[in-house]
Simulated assay, not measured.
Amino acid sequence: MRLPDTFYATVRARLGDALAKRDLDGFLATTPADVAFLTGFFYIATERPVYLWMPREGDPLLVIPRLDEEYAAQQEITVETVTYAEFPGVVTPEETLAAALSGRRTRRIGVGASLSIGALDKLTWAIGGASLVTTDAVAQLRLCKFPEEIPLHEAAARICDEMLAAGRELIADALARGTELPREDEIARHVIGYGTDRMYADYDRVVYTTKLAGGLVYAGPNSALPHGLPTRRRVRPGDTLILSLGAAVASRFVESERTFVIGEPTAEQRRYYEADREAQQVGTEAMRVGRTCAEVNRECLDVLRGHGLGDYIRHRQGHGIGLQNHEAPWVEDGDDTVLAPGMLLSSEPGVYVPGHAGYRISDTVLVTDAGPRRLTSYPRDLASNVIEGVR
């Protein structure tokens, strides 16, 4: 699961160049995703902070709670590591960091935009004389995936597509047997369990920053709520059903989302489904090098507007995916980021009709010089997503 040392060497060299351009002496990583990206160390985020010092020149330094020391060794972390006893500690984590940085050049320290005000105050007090500056140096490095990362996303995509098939099969089996159909929460538990089991079956060492597999499941009127949580409602014949699933290998995420219809679709269901499928196709094809996120989003959602469904649009076309399932860039009118090779994006326009249902099709798309390439491949046509109990 660990990427080769050459990957981390390349990342650090590019970060050094970025810090030099910004007149920063180093970058202080404070989030699981940034720490994993820069060192390959994965940890569970708790109240105990982890601090990674990435100097513009010289060797990195990792400050971790003592209880994670063995875990870091198991992950074959090669950077210098300093531990602190406990949180909040007689000697705080920030004081431990400051002592370890003593004698190093720390005039201007870059930090990520997500650093909390409380953590900023503690660090500023501990590292006296240093100026902590918000920077996008690491965020920019993460925008385009490195070649070594792509196979991990591809592996996650295969598992995510299998999760969709497992959810569909659970419902189809119940229809075929004539038994009670599963609840939304039961479907969610089933697909998440399937994805998690596949990870542990395929890999000797499983690591992640947030989760291995996740799923939102909503049917009928509930599916008109884009971020609604699964309920105890049982799915039923005639329902529109959204399976919104994600999976990550070495915390390299993908999304694969599909809309299903249980039983013969009505004319209304066909209309909404086909409009969303067309928008997703157009939007995906628009994800080309040189286009801006804003242009792609407008072109995608204009398809829905052209079908008279503008009032049923609830969100942007998509977002970036990487070590987090939602990260920059944002495929939305307010983001003028120019698409470049290696960017990994979700393409997930949706139609949400209050009181009726929602329709969303999502793929994880890799931007390449040759054009957009879907990593997820579960069928998108309506005929393939009608669930019936025929054996």
Rank of each mutant, 00 (worst) to 15 (best):
L3P: 02
F7S: 00
L15G: 03
G16W: 10
D17I: 09
A36G: 02
F41N: 00
T46L: 08
E47V: 14
L52M: 07
P55G: 04
P60S: 11
Y71N: 15
A72H: 01
A73S: 12
V79D: 11
L97V: 12
K122E: 13
T124Q: 10
A130T: 11
Q140S: 06
K145M: 02
I150F: 01
L152N: 06
A157D: 07
R168P: 06
R177E: 15
L181V: 02
L181M: 03
L181I: 06
D185A: 08
A188P: 00
D202K: 13
G214Q: 02
G215W: 00
L225E: 11
L225S: 05
V235K: 03
A267S: 02
E278P: 10
Q280V: 11
Q281N: 13
E285A: 15
G290I: 13
T292H: 13
E299I: 14
L304N: 12
D311Q: 15
R316D: 14
G318F: 07
I321R: 05
L323C: 01
L323E: 04
Q324R: 14
V331F: 06
D333A: 15
D336W: 12
G342P: 11
L345A: 10
E348V: 06
P349W: 10
Y359E: 00
V365Y: 01
P372C: 05
P372S: 05
L375E: 07
T376N: 01
D381K: 01
D381G: 11
V390T: 15
R391T: 09
